[in-house]
Design a protein around this nucleic acid. Structure first.
Lengths: 219, 219
DNA sequence: GACATCTTTTAGGTTTGTCTAAAAAATATT
DNA sequence: AATATTTTTTAGACAAACCTAAAAGATGTC
């Protein structure tokens, strides 16, 4: 009945990589995502296919079945609820919670997750601004766009990020850029592709790469 | 550096079985505790010995080294802190938390455990009345004795149990016997070895076996 | 359409943790 | 002390999840 950590991680990777709901994902893409060899991926795809969690044909890539999608979405739900707990209850920072949640998401107990959800007050978004699926797998999207869309003089509030890379989040944290902070664009250097912005009355520079990964909503 | 779940479970089993601090534990005892074969235990004892977490000689049993004892004690700390969280914060009952904590105790992050300890207010005892080691591995014992020591007319308060078997805890729960409840001994049938007691103005019978596993302190 | 390249799979091997069956050591019995 | 019994270890195998190297299939280029 229960799946191994490895099986669960493959399902999560496939969900993450399949942009469209039933998009198929290549062996190499999964190998890159999980930092493993293509040969190992092929082995696992066969196993998940036998368990009817994915549909898979040799040389044709894989896609989640309905059941696989359900399992993967519940993993995302668990991951994000634990992240909220770590930040909101334990006072950890958003750059240090991802790896811990990566372990916590594998704890097996539906009842635990339901209680945690209640305890946290049914949060709809995690500390990175990503939506948390409910027990039925449904989640709310929200209007958000990258910081680079704003023009000089305009203002936005940080509601999330596009990556969960620890060093990236730590970088933002060090600059004082966290969820809820208000950012005003001062200038936009088209030539070297950097932004000068104001946060908490402090001015700082952001590279285009970083700015593109910061998600905001208009004020 | 990090240990596998299996290695950690062996260390915990050895700690649990070594009554005296440096008591040695037999291969069969560990096999019974972990519900595995003696051959598997022998394999693992060799590995843990190579890692200098236990001292082990063929046919002579095993005992924890100082480092092994430290690791095992921290696992107990993690297990019991998580149990407090599950009961106190999430409102779960003491009979359902053991198995979940058995998984949670393996999550790797000292910082997480320190924050959890702070969040819970540095609890000294878990929901079953067992002491929680602090970050240095020290813990407080407390005056406690089995319910069977009380004589008719005497009163005691439940502060723990001697087993963590789920069905046993569920049984107590169903009878309304939880931590903090006050029990008065009404009579003691020496012949068939049962007690008649009063809890919350309700009378009930307890077998000698059950009564021996309930730990109380005098009022 | 033939050749080169990239992707994916197969084949064979490793490690971890488990198992059963058989051998060896320790302990108990008479 | 010799024998029987129990405990523990060794030997050999297996499943899960991974690896490298080689083969097979798909794709791109001229």
């Amino acid at each position: 009945m229960g799946l191994s950590y490895a099986e669960e991680n493959y399902l999560k990777a496939i969900l993450k990589l399949s942009g469209s709901p039933d998009g198929t994902v290549s062996t190499n893409a999964i190998a890159a995502q999980l930092d493993t060899s293509a040969a190992s991926v092929t082995d696992m795809l066969k196993k998940l296919s036998d368990k009817e969690l994915i549909t898979y044909q040799r040389y044709k890539g894989a896609s989640l079945t309905e059941e696989g999608q359900r399992v993967a979405t519940m993993l995302v739900r668990k991951h994000r609820l634990w992240e909220v707990f770590l930040v909101q209850s334990l006072g950890m920072t958003w750059d240090e919670v991802h790896e811990i949640a990566e372990e916590l998401e594998h704890i097996q107990s539906d009842r635990l997750i339901d209680r945690l959800d209640v305890f946290l007050g049914h949060p709809k978004f995690d500390p990175h601004g990503d939506p948390i699926p409910n027990a039925q797998g449904k989640y709310t999207l929200r209007a958000q766009f990258p910081l680079t869309e704003l023009k000089p003089g305009q203002e936005g509030v940080v509601i999330g990020v596009r990556e969960d890379d620890t060093s990236f989040l730590k970088h933002l944290n060090d600059k004082g850029l966290t969820i809820g902070k208000s950012i005003i664009i001062l200038s936009n250097d088209e030539y070297d592709n950097t932004l000068r912005v104001s946060v908490d009355d402090l001015e700082l520079n952001l590279s285009g790469k970083v700015a593109r990964s910061i998600l905001i909503k208009p004020v």
